[in-house]
C-alpha cells in the first residue's frame, strides 16, 4: 500500500467516525426544523447524552446500556425543550441557549466528581467488504452503532415525507394557522418532533462518548450541535444535503487531526476552529431560503 492511499484511508476512516455523531443528530434536527422549531439545544442533547452514557456504562459495565440511556437523556432534554417552548411558550432560542449552558455546567461539574472508567461498544467489521482497498477499512470496520444510520436515515426521511405524522408535521412547520384550522394539533406535533430530535441527538452524543472516544471529557461535543444546525440550514432542509454537509464537517475534522501526522505544522488552536469557519463559509455560499419551512422559529399560539 503506498502512502498516499494509506493517508487517504486514515483520513477517510476518521472522517466517517467523526461525521457519524453529526449525522445522527442531523437526522433529529432535520425533523425538528421541518416542524418549525429551530432547535438550538442539540448541543445540550448531545453533551448530556455523552456524559450519561459514560456514567451509566461505568455503573452497569455495559457500554450498550450507556448508549441507550444516552438516547433517553437526549429525549428528556427534547421533551423539556418542547414543554417549555411549545406548551408554555417560552422563547425557543432562549430555552435552547439556557439548556446548553445548563448541561455544559452540570456535566463539567459531574465529570470532576466521579472517576468514570473507559467503556466502548464493540467494533463490527463486515467480512469480505472490509478488505476492499481504501474504502474497506473506513466504511466496513466500525463501532456497531454507526450501522444504525443505515436504518435511521431512511426512517427519518420516510417519517417526514411519507407518513401522516410527517405530513402534519410539515404543515405545522410551514403554516401553523392553516394546520390548526385543518384540525392538526400544531404544538403537539412540534413537541413530538423535538422528542425525536432529542433521541437522535442523544444517540449522536452517546456514540461520541461510548462509541468513539470511550470516555467523557469536559465539553467533549465542543459545538458539534451547532455544526448540525448549520448543516440542516445550508443543506436547504433536505436530508441528503444535510448529511453531505455532516460528512464534509467530519472530513474537515479528520484532516485537522491528520495534518500533523502528515508532516504539516499548523497552529493546532487555529485548526480547531477550521470546521466552524467552514460552516460559516458553507452557510454563506449554499444557503437558500427556498425550502425554508415557512414558519421556522415562529411560535404558534392559539388566539384566545
Amino acid at each position: 500500500m503506498n502512502t498516499v492511499a494509506g493517508d487517504l484511508e486514515t483520513i477517510l476512516s476518521s472522517g466517517i467516525r467523526l461525521a457519524a455523531p453529526l449525522a445522527f443528530a442531523a437526522c433529529g434536527e432535520y425533523v425538528a426544523e421541518r416542524a418549525g422549531t429551530l432547535n438550538v439545544s442539540v448541543e445540550a442533547m448531545m453533551l448530556g447524552a455523552a456524559f450519561c452514557s459514560i456514567a451509566v456504562a461505568g455503573l452497569t459495565g455495559s457500554a450498550t446500556a450507556g448508549l441507550l440511556v444516552g438516547v433517553l437523556l437526549g429525549a428528556l432534554v427534547g421533551s423539556a425543550h418542547g414543554a417549555l417552548s411549545h406548551r408554555w411558550h417560552v422563547n425557543s432560542f432562549v430555552v435552547g441557549l439556557l439548556l446548553n449552558a445548563l448541561v455544559l455546567g452540570l456535566t463539567s461539574y459531574l465529570a470532576t466528581v466521579g472517576n468514570p472508567s473507559r467503556h466502548q461498544v464493540e467494533l463490527v467489521s463486515v467480512p469480505g467488504l472490509r478488505d476492499l482497498p481504501v474504502l474497506g477499512a473506513p466504511l466496513f470496520v466500525e463501532r456497531w452503532p454507526v450501522y444504525l444510520l443505515l436504518a435511521l436515515v431512511p426512517l427519518a426521511w420516510w417519517l417526514v415525507e411519507r407518513s401522516r405524522w410527517g405530513l402534519e408535521l410539515r404543515a405545522a412547520g410551514e403554516n401553523p394557522e392553516a394546520a390548526h384550522m385543518t384540525g392538526i394539533r400544531v404544538n403537539l406535533r412540534r413537541r413530538q418532533a423535538l422528542l425525536w430530535c432529542g433521541a437522535l441527538a442523544g444517540l449522536g452524543g452517546a456514540y461520541l462518548a461510548v462509541g468513539e472516544v470511550g470516555s467523557f471529557n469536559q465539553n467533549m461535543t465542543a459545538g458539534r450541535g451547532y455544526l448540525v444546525i448549520a448543516a440542516v440550514i445550508f443543506g436547504g432542509w433536505r436530508l441528503g444535503r444535510t448529511l453531505a454537509g455532516c460528512a464534509v464537517f467530519g472530513l474537515a475534522d479528520a484532516l485537522r487531526l491528520a495534518l500533523p501526522a502528515l508532516g504539516h505544522t499548523v497552529n493546532s488552536q487555529l485548526l480547531i476552529s477550521a470546521p466552524y469557519l467552514l460552516a460559516l463559509l458553507a452557510m454563506l455560499l449554499f444557503t437558500t431560503r427556498q425550502r425554508r419551512p415557512g414558519a421556522l422559529a415562529q411560535p404558534f399560539r392559539r388566539t384566545p
Partner: peptide, 12 residues
C-alpha cells in the same frame, strides 16, 4: 369551512 384567508399550506 372554506376560509376567506385560505387554510392551505403553500409548499405542499
Amino acid at each position: 369551512m372554506v376560509h376567506q384567508h385560505f387554510s392551505l399550506v403553500d409548499p405542499l
